[in-house]
Design a binder for these strands. Structure first.
Lengths: 314, 314
DNA sequence: CTGAAAGCGCTTACAG
DNA sequence: CTGAAAGCGCTTACAG
Protein backbone atom coordinates (compact mmCIF):
# COMPACT_ATOMS: atom_id res chain seq x y z
CA UNK A 1 0.00 0.00 0.00
CA UNK A 2 2.71 2.46 0.91
CA UNK A 3 4.11 2.02 -2.57
CA UNK A 4 0.88 3.22 -4.11
CA UNK A 5 1.04 6.27 -1.90
CA UNK A 6 4.70 7.08 -2.29
CA UNK A 7 4.84 6.11 -5.96
CA UNK A 8 8.29 4.63 -5.39
CA UNK A 9 7.57 1.32 -6.98
CA UNK A 10 5.75 0.60 -10.20
CA UNK A 11 2.24 -0.66 -9.46
CA UNK A 12 -0.22 -1.76 -12.09
CA UNK A 13 -3.03 0.64 -12.87
CA UNK A 14 -5.65 -1.89 -11.77
CA UNK A 15 -3.99 -2.51 -8.41
CA UNK A 16 -3.46 1.19 -7.90
CA UNK A 17 -7.14 1.88 -8.53
CA UNK A 18 -8.26 -0.87 -6.16
CA UNK A 19 -5.94 0.24 -3.37
CA UNK A 20 -6.95 3.85 -3.78
CA UNK A 21 -10.61 2.92 -3.62
CA UNK A 22 -10.10 1.12 -0.32
CA UNK A 23 -7.98 3.94 1.09
CA UNK A 24 -10.68 6.41 0.23
CA UNK A 25 -13.51 4.22 1.54
CA UNK A 26 -11.87 3.63 4.90
CA UNK A 27 -10.68 7.21 5.10
CA UNK A 28 -7.18 5.96 5.75
CA UNK A 29 -4.56 8.57 6.54
CA UNK A 30 -1.05 7.66 7.58
CA UNK A 31 -0.47 8.36 11.26
CA UNK A 32 1.58 11.55 11.35
CA UNK A 33 3.45 10.60 14.52
CA UNK A 34 4.60 7.28 13.09
CA UNK A 35 5.52 8.88 9.81
CA UNK A 36 7.31 11.72 11.60
CA UNK A 37 9.27 9.35 13.78
CA UNK A 38 10.46 7.43 10.77
CA UNK A 39 11.16 10.36 8.42
CA UNK A 40 12.31 12.88 11.01
CA UNK A 41 9.95 15.36 9.43
CA UNK A 42 6.77 16.78 10.94
CA UNK A 43 5.43 18.36 7.75
CA UNK A 44 4.64 21.39 9.87
CA UNK A 45 5.77 25.00 9.53
CA UNK A 46 5.69 27.62 12.29
CA UNK A 47 4.84 31.30 11.90
CA UNK A 48 5.80 33.72 14.67
CA UNK A 49 4.30 37.21 14.71
CA UNK A 50 4.31 39.97 17.32
CA UNK A 51 0.57 40.57 17.19
CA UNK A 52 -2.01 38.32 15.60
CA UNK A 53 -4.77 40.91 15.98
CA UNK A 54 -2.87 43.00 13.43
CA UNK A 55 -4.57 42.13 10.15
CA UNK A 56 -1.23 42.24 8.35
CA UNK A 57 -0.03 39.31 10.42
CA UNK A 58 -3.33 37.45 10.15
CA UNK A 59 -3.02 37.65 6.37
CA UNK A 60 0.49 36.21 6.55
CA UNK A 61 -0.99 33.20 8.33
CA UNK A 62 -3.77 32.79 5.79
CA UNK A 63 -1.30 32.95 2.91
CA UNK A 64 0.91 30.29 4.47
CA UNK A 65 -2.01 27.98 5.22
CA UNK A 66 -3.20 28.29 1.64
CA UNK A 67 0.07 26.86 0.34
CA UNK A 68 0.88 24.40 3.08
CA UNK A 69 -2.54 22.71 3.23
CA UNK A 70 -2.39 22.06 -0.50
CA UNK A 71 0.96 20.30 0.00
CA UNK A 72 -0.14 18.35 3.05
CA UNK A 73 1.85 20.52 5.40
CA UNK A 74 0.34 22.32 8.39
CA UNK A 75 1.04 25.86 9.58
CA UNK A 76 1.18 26.69 13.28
CA UNK A 77 0.77 30.35 14.19
CA UNK A 78 2.27 31.69 17.41
CA UNK A 79 2.08 35.15 18.87
CA UNK A 80 5.13 36.51 20.68
CA UNK A 81 4.52 40.14 21.67
CA UNK A 82 7.31 42.68 21.19
CA UNK A 83 9.12 43.82 24.31
CA UNK A 84 9.37 41.00 26.78
CA UNK A 85 10.90 37.56 26.98
CA UNK A 86 8.30 35.97 24.72
CA UNK A 87 10.20 35.46 21.49
CA UNK A 88 12.95 33.11 22.74
CA UNK A 89 10.39 31.04 24.68
CA UNK A 90 8.11 30.64 21.68
CA UNK A 91 11.02 29.78 19.39
CA UNK A 92 12.22 27.14 21.84
CA UNK A 93 8.72 25.63 21.85
CA UNK A 94 8.64 25.46 18.07
CA UNK A 95 12.11 23.98 17.83
CA UNK A 96 11.24 21.42 20.52
CA UNK A 97 8.18 20.55 18.46
CA UNK A 98 10.50 19.82 15.56
CA UNK A 99 8.93 22.23 13.10
CA UNK A 100 10.44 21.64 9.67
CA UNK A 101 10.62 25.37 9.07
CA UNK A 102 9.91 28.66 10.81
CA UNK A 103 8.78 31.97 9.35
CA UNK A 104 9.77 34.83 11.59
CA UNK A 105 7.68 38.01 11.32
CA UNK A 106 9.02 41.55 11.44
CA UNK A 107 11.09 41.50 14.61
CA UNK A 108 14.22 42.80 16.14
CA UNK A 109 15.33 39.20 16.65
CA UNK A 110 18.84 38.77 18.04
CA UNK A 111 21.46 36.74 16.31
CA UNK A 112 21.14 34.30 19.20
CA UNK A 113 17.41 33.81 18.51
CA UNK A 114 18.11 33.09 14.86
CA UNK A 115 20.92 30.66 15.61
CA UNK A 116 18.65 28.81 18.02
CA UNK A 117 16.45 28.00 15.03
CA UNK A 118 18.96 27.16 12.36
CA UNK A 119 21.33 25.46 14.81
CA UNK A 120 18.75 22.73 15.31
CA UNK A 121 18.44 22.15 11.59
CA UNK A 122 15.12 23.99 11.31
CA UNK A 123 14.81 26.02 8.12
CA UNK A 124 14.21 29.76 8.50
CA UNK A 125 12.58 32.53 6.50
CA UNK A 126 12.81 36.08 7.84
CA UNK A 127 10.22 38.65 6.79
CA UNK A 128 12.49 41.65 6.53
CA UNK A 129 15.96 42.91 7.17
CA UNK A 130 19.02 42.52 4.99
CA UNK A 131 19.87 39.01 3.87
CA UNK A 132 23.34 39.20 5.40
CA UNK A 133 22.02 40.10 8.86
CA UNK A 134 21.52 36.44 9.76
CA UNK A 135 20.89 32.89 8.59
CA UNK A 136 17.93 31.85 6.46
CA UNK A 137 16.09 33.26 3.47
CA UNK A 138 14.28 36.61 3.36
CA UNK A 139 10.87 37.53 1.95
CA UNK A 140 9.84 41.17 2.02
CA UNK A 141 7.83 43.82 0.22
CA UNK A 142 9.44 46.61 -1.79
CA UNK A 143 9.06 49.18 0.97
CA UNK A 144 11.38 51.84 -0.44
CA UNK A 145 9.80 51.63 -3.87
CA UNK A 146 6.28 51.58 -2.44
CA UNK A 147 6.72 54.82 -0.56
CA UNK A 148 8.56 56.39 -3.48
CA UNK A 149 5.64 55.67 -5.81
CA UNK A 150 3.12 56.99 -3.31
CA UNK A 151 4.98 60.28 -2.86
CA UNK A 152 5.53 60.56 -6.61
CA UNK A 153 1.76 60.31 -6.95
CA UNK A 154 1.31 63.16 -4.45
CA UNK A 155 3.78 65.36 -6.33
CA UNK A 156 3.00 64.60 -9.96
CA UNK A 157 -0.71 63.79 -9.99
CA UNK A 158 -1.88 65.93 -7.13
CA UNK A 159 0.57 68.82 -7.14
CA UNK A 160 1.45 68.85 -3.43
CA UNK A 161 4.67 70.69 -2.61
CA UNK A 162 5.22 70.91 1.14
CA UNK A 163 5.07 67.28 2.12
CA UNK A 164 5.69 66.30 5.75
CA UNK A 165 6.57 62.87 7.16
CA UNK A 166 5.34 61.26 10.38
CA UNK A 167 7.46 58.24 11.28
CA UNK A 168 7.11 55.57 13.94
CA UNK A 169 9.79 54.82 16.49
CA UNK A 170 13.04 56.08 14.95
CA UNK A 171 15.30 53.24 13.87
CA UNK A 172 12.57 50.56 13.86
CA UNK A 173 12.02 48.96 10.47
CA UNK A 174 10.31 49.16 8.12
CA UNK A 175 10.12 52.84 9.13
CA UNK A 176 13.59 53.62 7.85
CA UNK A 177 12.95 52.07 4.44
CA UNK A 178 9.73 53.99 4.09
CA UNK A 179 11.46 57.25 5.00
CA UNK A 180 14.09 56.45 2.38
CA UNK A 181 11.38 56.13 -0.28
CA UNK A 182 9.89 59.46 0.77
CA UNK A 183 13.29 61.15 0.51
CA UNK A 184 14.03 59.57 -2.85
CA UNK A 185 10.77 60.80 -4.37
CA UNK A 186 11.23 64.34 -3.10
CA UNK A 187 14.85 64.50 -4.26
CA UNK A 188 13.79 63.21 -7.66
CA UNK A 189 11.23 66.02 -7.93
CA UNK A 190 13.75 68.62 -6.79
CA UNK A 191 11.75 69.37 -3.64
CA UNK A 192 13.16 70.28 -0.24
CA UNK A 193 12.96 67.94 2.74
CA UNK A 194 12.50 70.56 5.43
CA UNK A 195 13.70 69.34 8.82
CA UNK A 196 10.74 70.90 10.57
CA UNK A 197 8.37 68.70 8.54
CA UNK A 198 9.84 65.37 9.66
CA UNK A 199 8.85 63.90 13.02
CA UNK A 200 9.34 60.47 14.66
CA UNK A 201 6.75 59.17 17.13
CA UNK A 202 5.36 55.62 17.32
CA UNK A 203 3.53 53.23 14.96
CA UNK A 204 0.20 53.85 16.67
CA UNK A 205 -2.87 56.00 16.36
CA UNK A 206 -1.66 58.12 19.26
CA UNK A 207 1.67 58.58 17.53
CA UNK A 208 -0.22 59.99 14.54
CA UNK A 209 -2.22 62.39 16.69
CA UNK A 210 0.90 63.77 18.31
CA UNK A 211 2.91 63.87 15.11
CA UNK A 212 0.23 65.74 13.17
CA UNK A 213 -0.16 68.31 15.94
CA UNK A 214 3.56 68.93 15.86
CA UNK A 215 3.77 69.35 12.09
CA UNK A 216 0.79 71.71 11.95
CA UNK A 217 2.69 74.00 14.27
CA UNK A 218 5.48 74.50 11.71
CA UNK A 219 6.03 78.11 10.63
CA UNK A 220 5.09 77.20 7.10
CA UNK A 221 2.62 74.30 7.52
CA UNK A 222 2.54 71.30 5.15
CA UNK A 223 -0.03 70.70 2.42
CA UNK A 224 0.37 66.92 2.71
CA UNK A 225 1.29 64.48 5.50
CA UNK A 226 2.92 61.20 4.58
CA UNK A 227 2.59 58.71 7.43
CA UNK A 228 4.76 55.64 8.01
CA UNK A 229 1.72 53.38 8.43
CA UNK A 230 -2.07 53.42 8.37
CA UNK A 231 -2.51 53.67 12.13
CA UNK A 232 -0.39 56.82 12.24
CA UNK A 233 -2.46 58.25 9.37
CA UNK A 234 -5.70 57.49 11.23
CA UNK A 235 -4.36 59.34 14.26
CA UNK A 236 -3.36 62.28 12.08
CA UNK A 237 -6.94 62.35 10.72
CA UNK A 238 -8.17 62.61 14.32
CA UNK A 239 -6.07 65.71 14.93
CA UNK A 240 -7.09 67.40 11.70
CA UNK A 241 -10.78 66.66 12.27
CA UNK A 242 -10.56 68.09 15.78
CA UNK A 243 -9.10 71.32 14.44
CA UNK A 244 -11.55 71.59 11.57
CA UNK A 245 -8.88 71.18 8.90
CA UNK A 246 -10.36 69.81 5.66
CA UNK A 247 -8.84 66.59 4.29
CA UNK A 248 -7.74 66.53 1.54
CA UNK A 249 -8.82 70.12 0.76
CA UNK A 250 -6.33 71.82 3.05
CA UNK A 251 -4.02 68.96 3.95
CA UNK A 252 -3.73 65.56 2.29
CA UNK A 253 -2.95 62.43 4.31
CA UNK A 254 -1.52 59.08 3.29
CA UNK A 255 -0.96 55.81 5.14
CA UNK A 256 0.90 52.57 4.44
CA UNK A 257 -0.11 48.87 4.58
CA UNK A 258 -3.77 49.13 3.55
CA UNK A 259 -5.19 47.54 6.68
CA UNK A 260 -8.95 47.10 6.78
CA UNK A 261 -9.45 50.25 8.85
CA UNK A 262 -7.89 52.30 6.02
CA UNK A 263 -11.14 52.00 4.09
CA UNK A 264 -13.35 52.33 7.17
CA UNK A 265 -12.24 55.82 8.24
CA UNK A 266 -13.57 58.96 6.67
CA UNK A 267 -12.14 60.22 4.40
CA UNK A 268 -10.90 56.80 3.33
CA UNK A 269 -7.10 56.59 3.24
CA UNK A 270 -4.89 56.70 0.20
CA UNK A 271 -2.21 54.17 1.08
CA UNK A 272 0.10 51.44 -0.23
CA UNK A 273 -1.02 47.85 -0.32
CA UNK A 274 1.44 45.64 1.52
CA UNK A 275 0.91 42.18 0.02
CA UNK A 276 0.75 40.26 3.30
CA UNK A 277 -0.98 37.19 1.92
CA UNK A 278 1.47 36.93 -0.94
CA UNK A 279 4.38 37.29 1.50
CA UNK A 280 2.98 34.38 3.50
CA UNK A 281 2.57 32.33 0.35
CA UNK A 282 6.12 33.01 -0.81
CA UNK A 283 7.63 32.16 2.55
CA UNK A 284 5.78 28.85 2.67
CA UNK A 285 6.78 28.01 -0.89
CA UNK A 286 10.45 28.66 -0.19
CA UNK A 287 10.44 26.47 2.91
CA UNK A 288 8.66 23.59 1.24
CA UNK A 289 10.95 23.70 -1.76
CA UNK A 290 14.03 23.73 0.47
CA UNK A 291 12.65 20.81 2.48
CA UNK A 292 11.39 18.71 -0.42
CA UNK A 293 14.62 19.10 -2.40
CA UNK A 294 16.86 18.98 0.67
CA UNK A 295 18.22 22.24 -0.69
CA UNK A 296 21.06 23.81 1.31
CA UNK A 297 22.03 26.28 -1.39
CA UNK A 298 22.90 29.93 -0.74
CA UNK A 299 20.34 32.17 0.99
CA UNK A 300 17.71 33.76 -1.22
CA UNK A 301 15.81 37.04 -1.01
CA UNK A 302 12.34 37.45 -2.52
CA UNK A 303 11.06 40.99 -2.93
CA UNK A 304 7.36 41.46 -3.64
CA UNK A 305 5.75 44.31 -5.53
CA UNK A 306 3.56 46.87 -3.79
CA UNK A 307 0.59 48.79 -5.18
CA UNK A 308 -0.58 52.34 -4.51
CA UNK A 309 -4.26 52.43 -3.47
CA UNK A 310 -5.89 55.77 -4.22
CA UNK A 311 -8.86 56.79 -2.07
CA UNK A 312 -10.22 60.09 -0.77
CA UNK A 313 -7.56 61.36 1.61
CA UNK A 314 -4.99 62.38 -1.01
CA UNK B 1 15.43 9.85 32.87
CA UNK B 2 11.84 9.53 31.77
CA UNK B 3 10.90 8.86 35.37
CA UNK B 4 12.26 12.20 36.45
CA UNK B 5 10.17 13.82 33.74
CA UNK B 6 6.97 11.91 34.26
CA UNK B 7 7.28 11.77 38.05
CA UNK B 8 5.89 8.26 38.00
CA UNK B 9 8.61 6.75 40.09
CA UNK B 10 10.20 8.09 43.22
CA UNK B 11 13.62 9.49 42.43
CA UNK B 12 15.97 10.88 45.02
CA UNK B 13 16.25 14.64 45.18
CA UNK B 14 19.95 14.51 44.33
CA UNK B 15 19.42 12.34 41.26
CA UNK B 16 16.51 14.46 40.17
CA UNK B 17 18.61 17.62 40.41
CA UNK B 18 21.49 16.06 38.47
CA UNK B 19 19.26 14.75 35.71
CA UNK B 20 17.43 18.02 35.42
CA UNK B 21 20.68 19.91 35.15
CA UNK B 22 21.81 17.73 32.25
CA UNK B 23 18.43 17.97 30.56
CA UNK B 24 18.57 21.72 30.75
CA UNK B 25 22.20 21.94 29.63
CA UNK B 26 21.69 19.79 26.58
CA UNK B 27 18.36 21.40 25.85
CA UNK B 28 16.78 17.97 25.70
CA UNK B 29 13.14 17.81 24.69
CA UNK B 30 11.37 14.54 24.09
CA UNK B 31 10.71 13.95 20.41
CA UNK B 32 7.03 14.71 19.90
CA UNK B 33 6.61 12.19 17.10
CA UNK B 34 7.99 9.34 19.17
CA UNK B 35 5.97 10.39 22.17
CA UNK B 36 2.87 10.78 20.05
CA UNK B 37 3.28 7.38 18.48
CA UNK B 38 3.54 5.76 21.88
CA UNK B 39 0.82 7.72 23.70
CA UNK B 40 -1.58 8.21 20.78
CA UNK B 41 -1.73 11.87 21.72
CA UNK B 42 -0.36 14.80 19.75
CA UNK B 43 -0.72 17.41 22.48
CA UNK B 44 -2.14 19.68 19.79
CA UNK B 45 -5.49 21.44 19.55
CA UNK B 46 -7.05 22.79 16.38
CA UNK B 47 -9.06 25.99 16.03
CA UNK B 48 -11.23 26.48 12.95
CA UNK B 49 -12.59 29.94 12.14
CA UNK B 50 -14.35 31.34 9.09
CA UNK B 51 -12.12 34.41 8.79
CA UNK B 52 -8.82 34.95 10.57
CA UNK B 53 -8.65 38.60 9.50
CA UNK B 54 -11.66 39.18 11.76
CA UNK B 55 -10.08 40.38 15.01
CA UNK B 56 -12.65 38.46 17.02
CA UNK B 57 -11.31 35.21 15.63
CA UNK B 58 -7.69 36.28 15.97
CA UNK B 59 -8.33 36.90 19.66
CA UNK B 60 -9.80 33.42 20.03
CA UNK B 61 -6.52 32.06 18.72
CA UNK B 62 -4.43 34.19 21.07
CA UNK B 63 -6.51 33.09 24.06
CA UNK B 64 -6.11 29.43 23.18
CA UNK B 65 -2.35 29.74 22.63
CA UNK B 66 -1.99 31.44 25.98
CA UNK B 67 -3.41 28.41 27.79
CA UNK B 68 -2.06 25.64 25.60
CA UNK B 69 1.56 26.83 25.49
CA UNK B 70 1.65 26.95 29.28
CA UNK B 71 0.54 23.29 29.36
CA UNK B 72 2.90 22.15 26.64
CA UNK B 73 0.13 21.84 24.10
CA UNK B 74 0.15 23.59 20.73
CA UNK B 75 -2.72 25.33 18.98
CA UNK B 76 -3.12 25.13 15.23
CA UNK B 77 -5.33 27.78 13.64
CA UNK B 78 -7.09 27.06 10.35
CA UNK B 79 -9.28 29.30 8.27
CA UNK B 80 -12.26 27.76 6.48
CA UNK B 81 -14.29 30.52 4.79
CA UNK B 82 -18.09 30.40 5.02
CA UNK B 83 -19.95 29.36 1.91
CA UNK B 84 -17.97 26.80 0.02
CA UNK B 85 -16.63 23.31 0.55
CA UNK B 86 -13.84 24.45 2.86
CA UNK B 87 -15.07 23.36 6.27
CA UNK B 88 -15.30 19.60 5.69
CA UNK B 89 -11.89 19.61 3.97
CA UNK B 90 -10.21 21.47 6.82
CA UNK B 91 -11.84 19.26 9.43
CA UNK B 92 -10.68 16.17 7.60
CA UNK B 93 -7.13 17.57 7.60
CA UNK B 94 -7.22 18.19 11.32
CA UNK B 95 -8.67 14.78 12.10
CA UNK B 96 -6.05 13.14 9.85
CA UNK B 97 -3.42 15.07 11.79
CA UNK B 98 -4.77 13.47 14.94
CA UNK B 99 -5.54 16.67 16.80
CA UNK B 100 -6.44 15.84 20.40
CA UNK B 101 -9.22 18.40 20.33
CA UNK B 102 -10.90 20.84 17.97
CA UNK B 103 -12.51 24.18 18.71
CA UNK B 104 -15.06 25.04 16.08
CA UNK B 105 -15.81 28.76 15.59
CA UNK B 106 -19.24 30.26 14.93
CA UNK B 107 -20.45 28.19 12.00
CA UNK B 108 -23.47 26.61 10.53
CA UNK B 109 -21.70 23.25 10.76
CA UNK B 110 -23.79 20.28 9.74
CA UNK B 111 -24.36 17.34 12.03
CA UNK B 112 -22.24 15.37 9.61
CA UNK B 113 -19.29 17.75 10.09
CA UNK B 114 -19.54 17.44 13.85
CA UNK B 115 -19.78 13.66 13.76
CA UNK B 116 -16.68 13.53 11.55
CA UNK B 117 -14.77 15.05 14.46
CA UNK B 118 -16.17 13.19 17.44
CA UNK B 119 -16.49 9.92 15.52
CA UNK B 120 -12.70 9.77 15.32
CA UNK B 121 -12.35 10.25 19.06
CA UNK B 122 -11.30 13.88 18.74
CA UNK B 123 -12.74 16.08 21.47
CA UNK B 124 -14.90 19.02 20.38
CA UNK B 125 -15.82 22.44 21.71
CA UNK B 126 -18.36 24.48 19.77
CA UNK B 127 -18.41 28.26 20.13
CA UNK B 128 -22.14 28.80 20.04
CA UNK B 129 -25.43 27.14 19.45
CA UNK B 130 -27.50 25.12 21.89
CA UNK B 131 -25.72 22.31 23.69
CA UNK B 132 -28.19 19.74 22.44
CA UNK B 133 -27.63 20.64 18.78
CA UNK B 134 -24.67 18.31 18.53
CA UNK B 135 -21.81 16.50 20.24
CA UNK B 136 -19.14 18.25 22.29
CA UNK B 137 -19.04 21.06 24.82
CA UNK B 138 -20.10 24.65 24.18
CA UNK B 139 -18.44 27.95 25.13
CA UNK B 140 -20.24 31.16 24.33
CA UNK B 141 -20.80 34.72 25.46
CA UNK B 142 -24.03 35.88 27.06
CA UNK B 143 -25.39 37.41 23.86
CA UNK B 144 -28.99 37.88 24.96
CA UNK B 145 -27.95 39.52 28.22
CA UNK B 146 -25.32 41.66 26.49
CA UNK B 147 -27.80 43.21 24.09
CA UNK B 148 -30.38 43.57 26.84
CA UNK B 149 -27.96 45.58 28.97
CA UNK B 150 -26.96 47.75 26.05
CA UNK B 151 -30.56 48.61 25.18
CA UNK B 152 -31.37 49.15 28.85
CA UNK B 153 -28.57 51.71 28.88
CA UNK B 154 -30.10 53.47 25.86
CA UNK B 155 -33.51 53.62 27.54
CA UNK B 156 -32.65 54.36 31.14
CA UNK B 157 -29.46 56.41 30.97
CA UNK B 158 -29.98 58.14 27.65
CA UNK B 159 -33.74 58.38 27.37
CA UNK B 160 -34.17 57.07 23.83
CA UNK B 161 -37.70 55.93 22.98
CA UNK B 162 -38.00 54.96 19.33
CA UNK B 163 -35.26 52.38 19.02
CA UNK B 164 -34.81 50.56 15.72
CA UNK B 165 -32.91 47.32 15.06
CA UNK B 166 -30.70 46.45 12.08
CA UNK B 167 -30.01 42.72 11.97
CA UNK B 168 -27.72 40.60 9.82
CA UNK B 169 -28.94 37.71 7.73
CA UNK B 170 -32.22 36.61 9.33
CA UNK B 171 -31.89 33.29 11.11
CA UNK B 172 -28.06 33.38 11.34
CA UNK B 173 -26.73 33.33 14.89
CA UNK B 174 -25.79 35.13 17.00
CA UNK B 175 -28.20 37.59 15.32
CA UNK B 176 -31.29 35.94 16.75
CA UNK B 177 -29.95 35.99 20.30
CA UNK B 178 -29.06 39.65 20.00
CA UNK B 179 -32.51 40.48 18.67
CA UNK B 180 -33.96 38.60 21.61
CA UNK B 181 -31.97 40.81 24.02
CA UNK B 182 -33.23 43.92 22.25
CA UNK B 183 -36.84 42.74 22.53
CA UNK B 184 -36.45 41.80 26.18
CA UNK B 185 -35.11 45.21 27.11
CA UNK B 186 -37.87 47.07 25.26
CA UNK B 187 -40.59 44.86 26.72
CA UNK B 188 -39.16 45.40 30.20
CA UNK B 189 -39.34 49.17 29.68
CA UNK B 190 -42.90 48.96 28.35
CA UNK B 191 -41.82 50.26 24.93
CA UNK B 192 -43.24 49.21 21.58
CA UNK B 193 -41.27 47.18 19.07
CA UNK B 194 -42.63 48.74 15.92
CA UNK B 195 -42.41 46.41 12.94
CA UNK B 196 -41.30 49.21 10.67
CA UNK B 197 -38.20 49.75 12.83
CA UNK B 198 -36.81 46.23 12.49
CA UNK B 199 -34.89 45.26 9.37
CA UNK B 200 -32.72 42.25 8.45
CA UNK B 201 -29.81 42.71 6.02
CA UNK B 202 -26.31 41.21 6.35
CA UNK B 203 -23.47 41.31 8.91
CA UNK B 204 -21.45 43.73 6.81
CA UNK B 205 -20.83 47.42 6.42
CA UNK B 206 -23.00 47.46 3.30
CA UNK B 207 -25.79 45.77 5.24
CA UNK B 208 -25.62 48.64 7.72
CA UNK B 209 -25.78 51.26 4.99
CA UNK B 210 -28.85 49.71 3.43
CA UNK B 211 -30.55 49.00 6.76
CA UNK B 212 -30.08 52.55 8.04
CA UNK B 213 -31.46 54.02 4.82
CA UNK B 214 -34.53 51.85 5.15
CA UNK B 215 -35.19 52.74 8.79
CA UNK B 216 -34.76 56.47 8.19
CA UNK B 217 -37.58 56.24 5.66
CA UNK B 218 -40.08 55.12 8.34
CA UNK B 219 -43.07 57.42 8.80
CA UNK B 220 -41.98 58.13 12.34
CA UNK B 221 -38.15 57.81 12.20
CA UNK B 222 -36.12 56.29 15.08
CA UNK B 223 -34.06 58.23 17.60
CA UNK B 224 -31.64 55.32 18.05
CA UNK B 225 -30.41 52.44 15.87
CA UNK B 226 -29.29 49.24 17.54
CA UNK B 227 -27.13 47.20 15.17
CA UNK B 228 -26.46 43.46 15.38
CA UNK B 229 -22.69 43.96 15.10
CA UNK B 230 -20.05 46.66 14.78
CA UNK B 231 -19.67 46.40 11.01
CA UNK B 232 -23.38 47.04 10.54
CA UNK B 233 -23.11 50.03 12.87
CA UNK B 234 -20.18 51.43 10.88
CA UNK B 235 -22.24 51.15 7.70
CA UNK B 236 -25.15 52.90 9.40
CA UNK B 237 -22.77 55.72 10.36
CA UNK B 238 -21.86 56.07 6.68
CA UNK B 239 -25.49 56.60 5.70
CA UNK B 240 -26.16 59.10 8.46
CA UNK B 241 -23.01 61.06 7.67
CA UNK B 242 -23.97 61.20 4.00
CA UNK B 243 -27.36 62.64 4.87
CA UNK B 244 -25.97 65.11 7.37
CA UNK B 245 -27.72 63.48 10.33
CA UNK B 246 -25.92 64.24 13.61
CA UNK B 247 -24.80 61.22 15.68
CA UNK B 248 -25.70 60.94 18.51
CA UNK B 249 -27.52 64.33 18.48
CA UNK B 250 -30.35 63.30 16.16
CA UNK B 251 -29.90 59.54 16.04
CA UNK B 252 -27.83 57.34 18.33
CA UNK B 253 -26.03 54.24 17.00
CA UNK B 254 -24.73 51.14 18.76
CA UNK B 255 -22.71 48.14 17.61
CA UNK B 256 -21.80 44.76 19.07
CA UNK B 257 -18.47 42.89 19.50
CA UNK B 258 -16.13 45.84 20.12
CA UNK B 259 -13.79 45.15 17.23
CA UNK B 260 -10.84 47.49 16.85
CA UNK B 261 -12.58 49.59 14.22
CA UNK B 262 -15.31 50.43 16.74
CA UNK B 263 -12.94 52.89 18.39
CA UNK B 264 -11.42 54.07 15.11
CA UNK B 265 -14.57 55.46 13.53
CA UNK B 266 -15.97 58.85 14.34
CA UNK B 267 -17.98 59.16 16.46
CA UNK B 268 -16.52 56.15 18.25
CA UNK B 269 -19.07 53.36 18.74
CA UNK B 270 -20.88 52.48 21.91
CA UNK B 271 -20.93 48.70 21.78
CA UNK B 272 -20.72 45.46 23.78
CA UNK B 273 -17.41 43.80 24.41
CA UNK B 274 -17.47 40.19 23.27
CA UNK B 275 -14.77 38.48 25.34
CA UNK B 276 -13.06 36.65 22.49
CA UNK B 277 -9.78 35.99 24.26
CA UNK B 278 -11.55 34.61 27.32
CA UNK B 279 -13.68 32.40 25.10
CA UNK B 280 -10.50 30.99 23.55
CA UNK B 281 -9.01 30.43 27.00
CA UNK B 282 -12.10 28.64 28.28
CA UNK B 283 -12.33 26.38 25.25
CA UNK B 284 -8.67 25.37 25.60
CA UNK B 285 -9.07 24.73 29.32
CA UNK B 286 -12.07 22.49 28.79
CA UNK B 287 -10.31 20.42 26.16
CA UNK B 288 -7.15 19.98 28.17
CA UNK B 289 -9.08 18.99 31.26
CA UNK B 290 -11.12 16.47 29.30
CA UNK B 291 -7.96 15.04 27.77
CA UNK B 292 -5.80 14.99 30.88
CA UNK B 293 -8.50 13.37 33.00
CA UNK B 294 -9.79 11.15 30.19
CA UNK B 295 -13.14 12.72 31.04
CA UNK B 296 -16.11 11.46 29.02
CA UNK B 297 -18.73 12.98 31.32
CA UNK B 298 -21.84 14.77 30.09
CA UNK B 299 -21.47 17.79 27.79
CA UNK B 300 -20.88 21.14 29.45
CA UNK B 301 -21.80 24.68 28.50
CA UNK B 302 -19.74 27.68 29.64
CA UNK B 303 -21.34 31.11 29.30
CA UNK B 304 -19.09 34.15 29.60
CA UNK B 305 -20.08 37.60 30.79
CA UNK B 306 -20.18 40.58 28.44
CA UNK B 307 -19.53 44.25 29.14
CA UNK B 308 -21.16 47.39 27.73
CA UNK B 309 -18.55 49.83 26.34
CA UNK B 310 -19.79 53.41 26.31
CA UNK B 311 -18.29 55.76 23.74
CA UNK B 312 -19.56 58.71 21.72
CA UNK B 313 -22.18 57.26 19.41
CA UNK B 314 -24.91 56.67 22.02
C1' DC C 1 10.57 -7.38 -8.97
C1' DT C 2 8.66 -8.09 -4.14
C1' DG C 3 8.23 -9.85 0.72
C1' DA C 4 9.84 -9.48 5.25
C1' DA C 5 12.40 -7.14 8.61
C1' DA C 6 14.68 -3.33 10.87
C1' DG C 7 14.39 0.72 13.29
C1' DC C 8 12.92 5.80 14.14
C1' DG C 9 12.54 7.53 20.00
C1' DC C 10 9.70 7.33 23.13
C1' DT C 11 6.48 5.20 27.37
C1' DT C 12 4.99 1.68 30.18
C1' DA C 13 3.89 -3.09 31.37
C1' DC C 14 6.56 -6.75 32.81
C1' DA C 15 10.11 -9.65 34.81
C1' DG C 16 13.45 -10.10 38.17
C1' DC D 1 12.50 -1.05 43.75
C1' DT D 2 14.66 -1.11 39.00
C1' DG D 3 16.50 -2.88 34.50
C1' DA D 4 15.37 -4.55 30.14
C1' DA D 5 12.17 -5.30 26.63
C1' DA D 6 8.05 -4.67 23.95
C1' DG D 7 5.60 -2.09 20.84
C1' DC D 8 3.17 2.27 18.99
C1' DG D 9 2.66 2.70 12.91
C1' DC D 10 5.07 3.99 9.67
C1' DT D 11 9.13 4.01 5.66
C1' DT D 12 12.87 2.13 3.41
C1' DA D 13 17.11 -0.61 3.03
C1' DC D 14 17.90 -5.26 2.42
C1' DA D 15 17.54 -10.09 1.26
C1' DG D 16 15.82 -13.35 -1.77
Amino acid sequence: MSHVISGRRPVSAATRARVEEVIHRLGYQADPSARGLRTQRTRTLGLVVPDLANPFNAELAVGMQEITLAHDYLTVVCEAPLGGPYLPAVLRQLVARRMDGIVLGRYGATRRDLDLITGSGTRLVRLGGPLEAGPGDVVRAAEVEGMRDLVRHLVKERGYRRIGFIGGEEGVEPGGERFQGYRDALAEAGLDIPDDLVVWTSFTRDGGRIGAARLLAATEPPDALVCANDLIAIGALDTLRERGVDVPGQVAITGYDNIEAASLVSPALTTVLNPAREIGRSAARILMQRLDDDDHGPAREVVLAHRVVTRESA
